[in-house]
Computed example of a mutant assay.
Amino acid sequence: MKEAGPPESQRGRIERMGVLSLVGRVLFASIFLLSAYHEDSEFGSDGGPAAKYLEPKFNVFIKQVSTSTGMAVPHVEIKSVILATMYIRVFGGLMFILYSSVGAFLLLVYLVFITPVVYDFYHYKMESPQFVQLFTQFSQNLALCGALVFFLGMKSSIPRRYSKRRIAKSKTT
């Protein structure tokens, strides 16, 4: 009986690619997992340093959204925002490690919403050091978004693995 699937010489290469893919996903997800762990360890009753840093930027963002849309944005507690982003990073990172499109999508949504709020380089003059620092970090997050979009695109374009079922030979009598 002959197995369906790639020839023996390609199996080893496919297995190595699978291991390298897992290592890459773990390294990529570690950015999100470690940052969530760091925020959690400093969280405290007031939301920690992340809340102190994010609150003024978040308030400016909310004000801009309500001004440009003409609708009042409901008040959201900054601690809730910090907790929600921590959970999204942890759940999305773990799902991404497990090769899930849902995990990649959650991390992408997190980056799309948090990047323009936290790295608001557009509020500074180009000559200022804050502009350079924030623009660099903004660009890095854009690169992470690009990697996630690439992952989602590749995941949808790669055919499923070869079937490991054996092909039954027809019986002759």
Results as ranks from 00 to 15, higher is better:
2 K>Y: 15
4 A>C: 14
4 A>H: 13
4 A>V: 12
5 G>Y: 15
5 G>I: 14
7 P>W: 02
7 P>L: 03
7 P>Q: 05
7 P>N: 10
9 S>A: 10
19 V>P: 02
19 V>A: 08
20 L>H: 11
23 V>S: 13
24 G>D: 03
25 R>K: 14
25 R>H: 13
25 R>D: 12
28 F>Y: 15
31 I>G: 03
36 A>P: 02
37 Y>E: 02
39 E>W: 01
44 G>A: 10
45 S>F: 04
46 D>P: 07
48 G>R: 06
48 G>C: 10
50 A>W: 03
50 A>K: 07
51 A>V: 01
51 A>D: 04
52 K>R: 12
53 Y>R: 15
57 K>I: 01
57 K>A: 15
58 F>Y: 12
59 N>D: 09
60 V>C: 01
60 V>D: 06
60 V>P: 00
60 V>Y: 04
62 I>C: 06
65 V>C: 13
68 S>G: 09
72 A>E: 10
81 V>D: 03
82 I>G: 09
82 I>M: 05
92 G>K: 05
93 G>N: 00
95 M>I: 01
97 I>G: 14
99 Y>L: 07
99 Y>F: 11
99 Y>M: 08
102 V>G: 10
103 G>W: 05
113 F>G: 14
115 T>V: 05
119 Y>D: 03
121 F>G: 12
123 H>D: 10
124 Y>C: 12
126 M>W: 09
130 Q>N: 15
136 T>W: 14
137 Q>V: 03
139 S>R: 08
142 L>W: 01
142 L>Y: 02
142 L>M: 08
146 G>N: 07
151 F>L: 04
152 L>R: 11
157 S>G: 02
159 P>N: 11
166 R>V: 12
167 I>E: 09
169 K>E: 08
169 K>N: 07
